[in-house]
Nucleic acid binder design. Structure first.
Lengths: 192, 192
DNA sequence: GTCTATAGCCAGATAGAC
DNA sequence: GTCTATCTGGCTATAGAC
């Protein structure tokens, strides 16, 4: 998507971004299918018809949401690398950042995992897999930096453990699941 | 739901069951929201309007699908207990039964996990959490039979690992993820 | 019980005034 | 660029003939 700093047209500052932010939140809370253009427009404080000035179709909004979340992930990973030196600490920081609030996860699941899962049932639509590839690839690099030959498998394992935990947490509506599993995964990371 | 063996009205043999089976398959492949009554009726070979003779509303069909899948799970767990004596073998058999075909999981995810996740974003609708509670509770009993004091946590851990793996497998469209993680989880079960 | 026809609603998307 | 009004289509659900 167009970087807002490099966008050529100077007008409508922030309106497009407000639409994307509103869409991201509604999609997270309700899912893609259940979220209507009217929902998004209302949440962004913009008339319904005007949405189509910024996006040709609903799928284009979803694609913009994916790009926006991918940018957030990249920023997060960069910030973690700047704050932590030890690879194990970095992976722990990632898990805390995305699974930190168990109450929220219990209500809506993981923002990345739930989006990927819903969209994966609709081939032909926008591809959200980057949202999981980014953290997996990054975790792989951290494990490689620890000298692990099985870095890829460890990366898949830790992200899968988190995604599965988030799914159980929301399905069972029990933040305690996330709390207990997070503690276990962190202990496991320290033991590597 | 009414047990078909005990149902009082003798007519329409199998039609209701065919609707439920068709709905279960369509919901698995497309998700709940994207599946229409017309889809289900067509797949079952029944006229659209007639669906409402068997189910008052769409949510009632979804509830019947959940009940049907819960019955399947109970049957599966009972069959596993009859075939295997060692608790570790039983848990391994469960994982193989629900995650056996990586190609299918890569396309549609886990039938239980994806349904739970989608419905968990819509409180007020039918509650699918039984579909995850059944295998978790059963796995807990297996680990308890192995003498593990942390049986509950192990049960959550193993189901979460499977669910997370299924999610990554479908999001990345890579059956290899399921194959490799299954092997790792089975080895871990053997090491307990 | 079974099926056809259709009502009623609401979504995504468009036209065009300002 | 912004917004109002509206079109079109598809979905859930119902009415009522057979």
């Amino acid at each position: 998507m167009t970087d807002s700093k490099l966008r050529t047209d100077p007008v409508a500052p922030g309106k497009r971004d407000r639409l994307i932010a509103a869409a991201a939140q509604m999609v997270y809370e309700q899912g893609v299918e259940a979220t209507t253009i009217a929902d998004i427009a209302q949440a962004a404080g913009i008339p319904v018809g005007n949405v189509y000035y910024y996006f040709k179709a609903k799928n284009d909004i979803i694609a913009a949401v994916i790009d926006s979340r991918a940018g957030d992930i990249r920023d997060l990973l960069a910030a973690i690398e700047a704050c932590h030196d030890r690879p194990a600490d970095r992976v722990k920081a990632l898990l805390r950042a995305i699974g930190g609030d168990g109450e929220i996860v219990a209500r809506f699941g993981c923002p990345l995992g739930t989006l990927c899962q819903e969209l994966s049932k609709h081939p032909g639509g926008p591809d959200p897999s980057i949202l999981l590839r980014l953290p997996i690839d990054w975790a792989e690099r951290q494990f490689a930096a620890m000298g692990r030959a099985d870095a890829r498998e460890l990366a898949v394992q830790v992200i899968a453990a988190y995604q599965g935990t988030a799914l159980l947490t929301s399905a069972l509506r029990d933040p305690g699941v996330m709390a207990r599993e997070s503690a276990r995964i962190e202990a496991w990371l320290d033991s590597l």
